[in-house]
Simulated assay, not measured.
Amino acid sequence: MRVGVEVEEAGVLGRGAWLVAGAVAVTCMLLLGPSTPAGAPFARTVPVDAAKDVVPNRVMTWNLCNPCEESNVDRAAEIAAYAPQVVGLQEACVGDVERIRDHLANLHGLEYHVAYGPVLRNWSRCGGLPWKPGGYGQALLSAAPMTDVVTEEYPDGGSEDRGYIAVTTEVAGQTVRVFNTHLAQRRQESVREGQTAVLAPQVARYERALVLGDFNAVPDAPELAPIWALAEDTDAGCRPPAAGACEPTTDWQTKYDYVFLRGLSALGHEVRPSRYSDHHLLHTDVTAR
C-alpha cells in the first residue's frame, strides 16, 4: 500500500535525521570542550559587563584552609554567594586560585582580575611536580583592574614563611591601596609583632587603604597595636579594650580575621561560617569618608 510505503520512507528519513543530529551533537561537544567539573554540561552566559554583577564596594577576606580536601567549585560558590568586588584569600595555592577564578567566570558569570602573592613553594600543600611545587601564600581578586602589585615576605615568618601582597585599585569611587596578609601562627606573638612592624609603615603611606587578612591574633593582642593606630575594624564595636564584643571568625570561636579601614567607612558587615574552611567568610560594604 502506498500509505505503508510513505510510513516506511518517513521512518528511513527519521533515522537519517537522528544520525545527522547525533553527529552534529558529538561535533559540538568536541568543539566546545568538557562540561562542568561535576559532569553536568553548562552554557556559559557571561554578561557584557560582568563587573556590574558584583556588589560594588564590597570587600571580603577568607582563609581557605590548607591543606584541606575541598573542591574549588564549592569555594567559588561560597564567594559568588556574596559577590564581593574585592576578595583577599589566605593559605591560597596559585593553582587553586586559578581554578576558583575560572569557576567564578564560567559557573557564575563573575569576572575577576587576580594578583598572586606566594611566599613559598610547598608540594604537600599545593601539589605540583616534586621538583616544582605549587606556590602558596596570599591572593587578591578584584573586579576592577589592579596595578602596582607588591609581594613581600616578612623577614621572620615564624614556623612558616609569611608575607603580604599589596595592590592599587578602585573602591568606593576612590583609588585605594589594598593589603592582604597572613601573620605567624598562634603562640608566636613576638614574631607577629615584628611582622606588623613591617606592615604598618607601608599602610601609613596611603590616605585610603584596606588591610585584609588572617592576623592570628585577637583584637586586644599587643602586636596589633600598630595597625589599630592607623585604621579601624569594619565592626565599629570591635576595638580594644572592648574586644569581648567582637564577633568570632573561626570555628574555635575566636576573632582572627579582619577588614581594617583607613580613610574609608563601613556601611555594614557580615560574618558567615563556611562548610569548606575553619575560618568564616567576613565581608563588608564600604564607602569613602
Rank of each mutant, 00 (worst) to 15 (best):
A266E: 13
D251S: 12
A184E: 02
L281A: 12
A217M: 06
E6M: 10
Q185A: 11
A184W: 04
D257P: 03
M1K: 09
L30F: 09
V55Q: 11
V286R: 08
K52C: 04
P222D: 11
E78D: 15
A115M: 06
P201L: 04
R15K: 08
N216L: 03
L110Y: 02
A266V: 00
T175R: 15
A23P: 00
G14P: 01
F215S: 06
D53R: 15
H279C: 09
Q188W: 00
V286Y: 04
L19M: 09
L264A: 09
C65Q: 14
P84A: 11
R187M: 11
A25C: 13
L212S: 02
V114W: 04
L212E: 02
A266Q: 00
R2Y: 08
K52T: 12
A209V: 08
M1G: 10
W123Y: 10
R162C: 01
G4Y: 07
A139N: 12
E91L: 03
L30W: 05
G14R: 04
E270G: 00
T147G: 12
V54W: 02
N57T: 11
P222L: 07
G194K: 08
V24G: 08
W228K: 15
L267Q: 15
R99Q: 15
L264V: 11
V271E: 06
H108C: 06
G109R: 05
A77L: 01
D96W: 05
Y276L: 10
G244C: 01
G16P: 00
P222V: 03
A51D: 07
W131R: 14
V176E: 03
V5I: 13
R275W: 03
F179A: 10
R15P: 00
V55R: 14
G244E: 11
H103S: 06
R121Y: 15
Q188A: 09
E9W: 05
M29Q: 07
D251L: 11
N57G: 09
A76K: 09
V12K: 11
E193Q: 11
R192C: 07
D233R: 02
C68H: 11
Y112A: 08
F42I: 13
H280N: 14
D156W: 00
Q202K: 15
G135Y: 01
M29E: 05
L140F: 01
F215W: 14
D278T: 05
G117S: 04
A80P: 09
A76Q: 05
V59L: 13
S35R: 11
M1C: 08
V73Y: 01
W252M: 10
L32E: 12
L230R: 10
A17N: 06
R58C: 02
V149Y: 00
L141K: 06
V24S: 06
E270A: 15
D148A: 15
V86D: 05
A92N: 13
L183A: 10
L230C: 09
Y206I: 00
A172R: 02
A225D: 14
L13W: 13
E6F: 07
G163V: 02
G268V: 05
Y112L: 06
M146K: 04
V7M: 08
Y276H: 15
P145C: 01
Q138L: 15
R58H: 13
Q253I: 02
G88K: 06
V5A: 15
G39V: 05
H108G: 12
G11H: 07
L104C: 04
D285K: 05
T249S: 13
G33I: 02
A40P: 01
D74W: 12
T36M: 10
K52D: 11
A38Y: 02
P145D: 08
R125V: 09
V259I: 12
V20S: 07
Q90H: 04
P118E: 03
A231S: 10
